[in-house]
């Protein structure tokens, strides 16, 4: 049996896209780089101590003193270990990827909730995106966006966007039929039904998706470092390739601290919006 030339086909398609859609990729690339740089600039603007104080206050406002305490000690440790600028690079990458995932993912999720046809096409696509090894995305990402932080963000978005789409869809579908019926019966337009009834009620589920998306994009920082994204992931990668156990542990610990702070922050934020709704 002759081999199906799947690899050649893919290369042909990618090659064509590279030739003809270059202007589009350049545009996207420029935009993403701009966002990441802006975040990094903001994060690096204050002195680390001032940053930590602000972080502590924010943590106290959204959560409780325990979250504030953990954030302050965690980030002090990061500063002390000497990974501050790398951490800020990674944080910018993660937040950019999460932001893009949310901005793109929520509308797609809403679309899937409304249209069975869309859901039928997009759901298997999401399965594909989540199960395909993340490394594979790096190749076309590099092809289209060369190396650096931009292909890192792109790969992170592809890997991290599915939970936002899935849980947005689920959240809207879970809104009881009687409530949407009531919204219709009083003469709501579809927009009013969506923004006044469905989205507010889907919010807890939707936010769980956003939280997952943030965590998944954080898990991509090491992989992104393989294609030249600077940050704490690069430190882990270097430690692994050079077998530096101590350095590897330090850098890994920084990622863990970052993960816990991001997770608790987002969770507290959602809980807070939930409490406001009297749950």
């Amino acid at each position: 049996m002759p081999k199906l030339p799947l690899d050649e086909w893919i290369e042909t398609i990618v090659g064509w896209m590279e030739d003809h859609l270059k202007f589009l990729f350049d545009m996207i690339s420029g935009a993403i780089e701009g966002i990441v740089n802006a975040f990094t600039w903001v994060f690096m603007l204050p002195h680390p101590f001032l940053f930590i104080v602000i972080l502590g206050i924010l943590a106290f406002l959204v959560g409780r003193w325990s979250l504030a305490l953990f954030s302050v000690i965690g980030f002090l440790l990061i500063y002390d270990l000497g990974y501050w600028s790398q951490t800020m690079d990674s944080l910018s990458l993660v937040i950019t990827a999460a932001l893009i995932s949310v901005v793109v993912g929520i509308p797609i999720g809403i679309w899937c909730a409304y249209s069975k046809g869309a859901a039928r096409i997009i759901t298997p696509l999401l399965d594909f995106m989540q199960t395909m090894p993340a490394f594979v995305y790096l190749i076309p990402a590099v092809t289209f966006f060369s190396i650096g932080v931009v292909p890192g963000v792109i790969a992170s978005v592809i890997f991290a966007i599915p939970p936002t789409i899935r849980l947005t869809m689920l959240g809207i579908q879970q809104v009881s039929g009687e409530l949407t019926e009531a919204a219709d019966a009083f003469g709501s337009t579809s927009g009013q039904k969506l923004f006044k009834v469905q989205l507010p009620l889907a919010m807890p589920t939707l936010m769980a998706g956003v939280n997952q998306t943030i965590m998944l994009s954080l898990s991509m920082v090491v992989i992104a470092s393989m294609i030249g994204a600077q940050g704490i992931g690069a430190e882990v990668y270097r430690a692994v390739t050079q077998l530096q156990i101590g350095k590897g542990f330090e850098a890994g610990l920084v990622i863990v601290i970052l993960a816990i702070v991001l997770d608790r922050f987002t969770q507290q934020l959602f809980k807070k919006s939930d409490r406001k709704r009297g749950r």
Binding site: S176, E178, L179, E181, A182, D184, A185, F186, G187, K196, V197, L201, R277, G278
Partner: peptide, 16 residues
């Protein structure tokens, strides 16, 4: 629906 006919539902269907 807005001006002439309103509806009351069995399980109330209030927006929580």
């Amino acid at each position: 629906r807005r001006q002439t006919i309103s509806m009351v539902f069995q399980k109330f269907a209030l927006f929580p």
